[in-house]
Structures are given as structure tokens and as C-alpha cells.
Design a protein around this nucleic acid. Structure first.
Lengths: 207, 207
DNA sequence: GTCTATAGGTTGATAGAC
DNA sequence: GTCTATCAACCTATAGAC
């Protein structure tokens, strides 16, 4: 058999980096998780999508649990939703925070839900959230800090409880994402995002 | 064989109805779902817990999907949380509604989460929620109706949006239950249930 | 690091006796 | 309606060649 043409860099089908097997597997696994659920997350399915053999999965990640752990670590990206908005109009900041939160939840919800399918996975994901410090208290602290500053500046009602207001916004956004994810299409019968933001905004109005 | 003593109603060990195989299987299945997750919900595991053979599972419920559907139907009990509290103090009613919602979510959350872990199950549960009309808009309508009546009576601020206030309470309670269910133990760093209820209550205060 | 091949176990589902 | 027995399919994980 003649040597392969040098112009053909790799025998691989889709331009994937030469030794990026591990990355390819992780990406494929997250895709399967998001599109079909953890029940379909088998070494074969993942390997086929990554374009490798299923033995490679066990080479890179000891076992199935190892793959899941790596997926959680990769998928649980931290939320940084209030970086340079420290001095905007409170209502506008609320709006912006809600948008960031929505994007964040859409990203991590598949992982969160997958962990609920197995009682043994629950504490593992909970431990990751704890260790990487990406729990909901971070979002509360972040948003509440801004609200407190605005209270000092007299732009937000002093009677408002910043932590509670922040939590209400986060929870409302979370629930909204969950409903959409669950295909509960009763959105037209529920108050709009704007109506909720307006109502939370009322809590901030100076008396 | 002599007739059985009339005083002994049933020969079964634990007060189970004489031919309640179907019921026993359903109960066992729900127990497995709650305690271990849908990943461990196999015909064998369920059958063993119900004290029947696994062939019985397929006799009563065509296949695995049939069992899951029956579980959803049985587990998605409707929420009736504001029956005879039409004339209490708004804050007390909010408190009571939150308690009822918490009990409700604790009940249905395992089923909801199970459905989210598999893309094929999602539309099935969504369809049940739609058909049995147990979606979140029911809770909103219920609570908002009460708030509207209180607005008429002048006990609740007319500027308040009843639907939005109801939704905020429901979402905050939902998120709270989800966090507990997920073992996210940051509750001590988050505002208390009372703080949230107080803040929502502020939305109702007459100006 | 990646492959083929395969062992060993579990699962969904059916057949047929009682 | 309930059982025992069984299958085919699928899954995790390993062994060993390249």
C-alpha cells in the first residue's frame, strides 16, 4: 500500500485536533446529556459521537463515574453576572441580572437535573457546587451588594431587604427556566417576565 | 378447606388488598423513584419491593413506559391550597399558602425531576400537567384571586399586581424545595423563608 | 493513545404452566 | 393474575495488539 498523501493531514473525518480525544469525549458527553438525558449517556453512544472507540472513554476516564465527575466539573461554570454594572439604574440592573441568570441556568440545568436521576449522584454534584463555590448564595451576595450600595446612595428604599430582593429575582428566574425546560407551555397564562421585574422593582422604590 | 375466619379480613402480611398487585407495584415504583432515582427503577427492583415477580409488572403495565405513565398519573396530585382561607390576614394567608406549596412540591418534585433526566419523558409529563390542569397557572389564579378580593376590600395595596405577587411566592417556594432536594445546603447563607415572606408582604402594604 | 474483541453482568420483554 | 424460565439486547469494563 502506498504512503498516504502528505496533503491529507489526518485520517480523521472532521478536522478534530490530533490528540484531542479527551476533549472530544467530554464535549460529546455533554451534548448527549443535554439532548437526550443521562439515561442515554452510555460509553458507546458517547464514543460514537466523539468519533473514537468506547475503550478510549475508559482510558481517559477510569469508569462511568469518572466521566460523570469530569462532566460536572466542566459543566458547572461559575456565574459572573454583575461585573461592571455597579452604577446603573436599579431597574436596568435588575433586568440585566435576570438575563445573565437565565443564560446561566439554561447552561447548568441539564447537569442539575441529571444529578437528580440517581440518589448517588446528588451528593457528588452538591459537593462540586460547594467546592467550586457556585451555589446560589454567590448570586445573592453579588446582587445584594449592589442593592446595598444603592441604598446608601438613597436610590433604593431603605426598608428593602437586599438579600431577600436578590433571592426573589434569582428564584423567579430559576423557576422560569425550569418551566421552559420542562416544556410547560403555560407561559401565556402566567405573568410576564416584565411584570415580575416591575413588581420586584416596586420593592426598591424610595418611599 | 374450611371457610376463612370472618374476623380475619385478609391473609396478606401488611394490610394489602387481596389482589392489589397493581397497587403494590405502583407504590413500590414510587418509593424507588423517591429514594434512589429513576436510574434504579427497573422492573426487577420494583417487583422485588412489591413482593411480586417482574413478569407481573409487564402484565399490569404493558412495558416500562406504561409503568412510568401510570406513576406520573398517580403522583401528580392536584394542589388545593386555598380553600377556606378567603378572609384571613393577607400575611397569614401568604404564610399558609407557602406551607401548602412546600408540601406539594416535596411530593411531586421526584416525579418532575425524573422526567427531566430523559428527553423522551419530558413531553409525556408536560402533557399530563396540561391534561390534568395542574400547571403553575392554577396556583397563581388561586392566590391572585384572593389577593384581588383583598384589594377590593382595601386591605391590599391597589398598586400590587396580584398575579406577579402570587408567582413570586410560588417561585420562591419552588426554588427553596429544589435546593433542599438537591442537597444544596447553603440555606444558612441565604435569606430565611420568613425574610422572603416579609419582603413579599411589603408588596401588599397599603400606601 | 487508540483500536478490536470479548467477558460478564443487567435489563426489558415474552412464553407458557398453574 | 401470578409464577418460573428464558432470550436477545445492551451495558460496563478489561485484555492485548498496534
Amino acid at each position: 500500500m502506498p504512503p498516504m498523501s502528505a496533503s491529507e493531514e489526518s485520517p480523521r473525518r472532521r478536522g478534530r485536533p490530533p490528540s484531542g480525544g479527551r476533549e472530544a469525549i467530554l464535549e460529546a458527553a455533554l451534548t448527549v446529556l443535554r439532548d437526550h438525558g443521562i439515561a442515554h449517556l452510555t460509553s458507546r453512544e458517547v464514543a460514537a459521537r466523539a468519533g473514537v472507540s468506547d475503550a478510549s472513554v475508559y482510558y481517559h476516564f477510569r469508569d462511568r463515574a469518572g466521566l460523570l465527575e469530569a462532566m460536572f466539573e466542566r459543566g458547572m461554570k461559575p456565574l459572573l453576572f454583575l461585573q461592571d454594572a455597579e452604577d446603573g439604574d436599579p431597574r436596568a440592573v435588575l433586568r440585566q441580572a435576570a438575563a445573565s441568570l437565565e443564560a446561566f441556568f439554561d447552561d447548568v440545568l441539564p447537569i442539575l437535573h441529571a444529578a437528580q436521576s440517581d440518589a448517588e449522584l446528588r451528593p457528588i454534584v452538591a459537593e462540586y457546587i460547594e467546592r467550586k463555590d457556585v451555589g446560589p448564595h454567590r448570586g445573592v451576595e453579588n446582587l445584594a451588594g449592589y442593592l446595598r450600595a444603592q441604598q446608601q446612595a438613597g436610590r433604593v428604599n431603605r426598608r428593602a431587604n437586599p438579600d431577600a430582593v436578590a433571592m426573589l429575582l434569582i428564584d423567579a428566574t430559576f423557576a422560569r427556566c425550569v418551566r421552559r425546560h420542562m416544556l410547560i407551555r403555560s407561559e401565556e397564562r402566567l405573568p410576564s417576565r416584565e411584570a415580575l421585574l416591575d413588581e420586584i422593582g416596586r420593592l426598591l422604590e424610595p418611599t
